[in-house]
Simulated scan of single mutants.
Amino acid sequence: MSTVDPLKNERSGNVREVGGQAIWSLSTCKPGFGVEQLRDDRIDTYWQSDGQLPHLVNIQFQRKTTISDIYIYTDYKLDESYTPSRISIRVGTHFNDLQEIEVIMLTEPSGWVHIPIKDIKEQPVRMFMIQIAVTSNHQNGRDTHMRQIKIHSPTNGQGFSIDKCNNFTSLEFQQVSTIR
């Protein structure tokens, strides 16, 4: 099982999940196995494509958004030939100017796959659109299963962290610094 935890950095206040601010679309899906299942925070549901490769997940933001990480949950043990083996990450302002910035090869993944999104200067990338393209599956499978996708944006220290509560110095603040 994977030890990657996309919630760890969220809890620390370093990043926030911004997928809820985007408009999601899929190249294809079987009825009842679409965007809702991909974003429902449950690993026992999944998106299932229905057609020819590549299978696309399109994530469009209404304003330019900084993205630092993508997390994808897959489970080879359950999904076998439906499990992606090669994923292309593309970013841009719209469908017509997408640039491939990362290609990930997966070997029987089980759990969260972490994909850092960085430019050539190792900085998070600002964009209006992300496209996650499954270009091949294990065992030459035709359709794909993805169980969850999380999109993280850095908070630049602006997020709330429980650890920051210890910085209260006055007696009045210390009295209300714990949540009951």
Results as ranks from 00 to 15, higher is better:
83 T>A: 09
72 I>W: 08
35 V>E: 11
47 W>L: 05
80 E>S: 12
9 N>Y: 03
7 L>C: 03
95 F>Y: 14
23 I>L: 13
158 Q>Y: 04
65 T>G: 06
64 K>H: 12
95 F>N: 14
140 N>K: 01
78 L>E: 09
174 Q>S: 00
120 I>W: 11
58 N>K: 15
6 P>M: 00
180 R>P: 02
24 W>H: 13
114 H>S: 06
38 L>M: 06
147 R>C: 02
9 N>R: 08
159 G>R: 01
29 C>I: 01
11 R>V: 05
46 Y>F: 14
178 T>N: 04
14 N>S: 11
150 K>G: 00
103 V>G: 05
104 I>R: 09
159 G>M: 04
52 Q>C: 07
111 G>Q: 03
123 Q>R: 15
134 V>W: 08
162 I>Y: 07
23 I>R: 15
18 V>Y: 06
119 D>C: 08
150 K>W: 07
168 F>P: 00
114 H>P: 00
6 P>E: 03
172 E>T: 00
149 I>R: 03
66 T>P: 07
76 Y>M: 08
94 H>T: 10
164 K>V: 04
54 P>C: 09
150 K>P: 00
122 E>Y: 12
44 D>F: 03
117 I>V: 14
65 T>C: 06
135 T>G: 01
165 C>A: 07
73 Y>V: 01
28 T>K: 15
33 F>P: 05
77 K>H: 09
24 W>Y: 15
166 N>T: 08
27 S>Q: 12
8 K>A: 08
25 S>F: 15
156 N>C: 03
73 Y>C: 01
20 G>P: 10
41 D>E: 05
125 V>P: 09
7 L>V: 02
38 L>T: 03
75 D>F: 06
100 E>G: 05
173 F>N: 05
45 T>E: 03
73 Y>R: 00
79 D>W: 12
94 H>A: 10
83 T>D: 06
180 R>K: 07
84 P>G: 06
156 N>W: 06
154 P>E: 05
107 T>V: 13
80 E>R: 09
86 R>N: 10
28 T>I: 11
101 I>K: 02
140 N>S: 07
33 F>H: 10
164 K>Q: 12
30 K>Y: 10
25 S>R: 14
158 Q>G: 03
49 S>D: 08
14 N>R: 07
131 Q>N: 15
22 A>S: 11
39 R>C: 12
88 S>Y: 09
114 H>E: 09
133 A>W: 07
163 D>R: 14
101 I>E: 08
61 F>A: 02
177 S>C: 02
82 Y>K: 09
141 G>Q: 02
108 E>C: 11
4 V>I: 14
73 Y>W: 05
135 T>W: 02
100 E>W: 03
135 T>N: 08
86 R>D: 11
143 D>M: 01
57 V>T: 12
50 D>V: 01
93 T>M: 11
132 I>S: 06
105 M>D: 10
79 D>L: 09
40 D>E: 03
105 M>C: 12
18 V>L: 05
12 S>D: 07
28 T>Y: 07
120 I>F: 13
106 L>D: 06
98 L>P: 13
162 I>L: 07
39 R>I: 01
131 Q>G: 09
73 Y>H: 07
113 V>W: 00
121 K>L: 11
154 P>I: 04
174 Q>L: 00
48 Q>I: 00
161 S>E: 00
26 L>T: 15
50 D>R: 07
48 Q>V: 02
134 V>Y: 05
98 L>D: 10
151 I>L: 04
35 V>L: 09
74 T>Y: 00
65 T>E: 10
77 K>F: 11
